[in-house]
Design a protein around this nucleic acid. Structure first.
Lengths: 236, 236
DNA sequence: ACAAAAGTGTTTTAAGTACACCCATGG
DNA sequence: CCATGGGTGTACTTAAAACACTTTTGT
């Protein structure tokens, strides 16, 4: 059982509970503009505290899993997906995060490509939300998502994580759209393209994306590391 | 008691133990060259496992402390000092970090200015070591220190953390020496000085450092935030 | 032919790097 | 007056930003 029904004296004596949570980002076309936007899945709480409010997927740490494995497991259970990228975000340990019990949460963040199946995994208690239109979440989860967004933007600007939101093959314009969606500003297509072309991890293929309305763009692929290392520490 | 003497079946059942450790950096003049170098305090383990080996200061998380408070307390107990800068490093949760018990360690890193008193706090079981000349430490603490060094170098290069290793007043050459010690390479004094002077957080005073052998350099002070916020999340 | 995105070229701006040089002080 | 670190000036190199322009496709 996740939240034990400890009384006050038990709470004082017991060590803090240890939980793993995961902020899962994926791209979906906006209903209005059709341009890609950031979404994330939340789960509805079925018990107190914060019953019926939406929260980050998570749970207690099983004794047989590493932290990263627990997060990946977590992700698979709520979405049916495997992460393309998974990294530790932060350990949150404030005294009053949960009203009933002292909980220390080690939070991971992940990037996935949502498939039809994954989106169909929605249910009464699991739903995808636009990252910029979450309501009021349980616990301190709003601020955790804010921090995860901050980290995602940072990694995007300096690292090479955008490709983990895309499929194996992509056009340079698609990469630009990811940047524009996450950073929320327009980028010069010409300059952006040149920057990507100077990145050795991006390999051009002989294929072209067909079926568009205009000149067919060339397809590229990402040849960097998968972003699922044993312990990812490239953060800072 | 930090490490409980659980037998195997107890270990399977019990939740992972939660501990806080801290990597504490300070500058001390090298015995040979006199130039500043990085040092950090370690504690000798007085029980198994790894008895008599050196380890990072740490201990279990008390139920009444936030994570950051626990790290600061930790720091004060082993060195007698208050941190100038304190930030969460990473949560280490591998399955086999400790041979006797599953332990999840939330590790902080700190910058301090060692005083006479602090260095006098050395004892049989607490000693300061040069960061580049640690022996073989207990648990996975060598790799933790490596990661802390990585993070320190990164923060130094991009953030404004060097001043927390110095006193209230300092010369620009002293800042350069910090950079050279931590990054382990020479920097052009002229260009380095210009970069610092274009940093608004660095304020020039009317004072000059007297007593040197040459032209007395001007003293500056750092006016940025103290680096001890409630929860420091400027990491990425 | 025309619209629109793909893709190229060129100019400007800013930031970093290398290095020559002057200044002020103790000895 | 000389050695040395403090402090200034200037040319060179590199990367980013701005923007005009050409190419290729579908309609």
């Amino acid at each position: 059982m996740y939240v034990s029904s400890a009384n006050v004296s038990e709470r004082q004596a017991a060590p803090p509970a240890l939980a793993i949570s995961t902020v899962i980002f994926a791209l979906r076309p906006s209903a209005s503009s059709g341009r890609p936007t950031l979404w994330l899945p939340l789960v509805r709480r079925i018990r107190e505290p914060y019953r019926d409010q939406w929260a980050l997927p998570g749970g207690p740490l099983s004794h047989a899993e590493s932290l990263q494995d627990a997060a990946a497991q977590n992700l698979r259970e709520t979405t049916g997906l495997a992460p393309n990228y998974l990294e530790q975000l932060y350990a949150f340990g404030g005294l009053h995060r949960s009203p009933t019990q002292r909980v220390v949460s080690i939070v991971y963040w992940a990037l996935v490509q949502p498939t039809e199946a994954a989106l169909a995994d929605e249910s009464e208690n699991v739903r995808w939300f636009r990252a910029d239109r979450l309501g009021e979440l349980a616990f301190d989860h709003n601020s955790i998502v804010d921090y995860a967004l901050f980290r995602l933007r940072n990694k995007l600007a300096y690292g090479s994580v955008a490709y983990h939101l895309l499929g194996e093959y992509f056009t340079l314009a698609q990469v630009r759209e990811v940047y524009e969606a996450v950073l929320d500003r327009q980028l010069d297509p010409a300059n952006f393209r040149r920057q990507l072309k100077s990145t050795p991890e991006i390999q051009e293929t002989g294929e072209y994306l067909q079926g568009g309305k205009h000149r067919p763009p060339r397809l590229y692929r990402f040849t960097g590391r998968p972003g699922l290392d044993q312990d990812n520490r490239s953060t800072p």
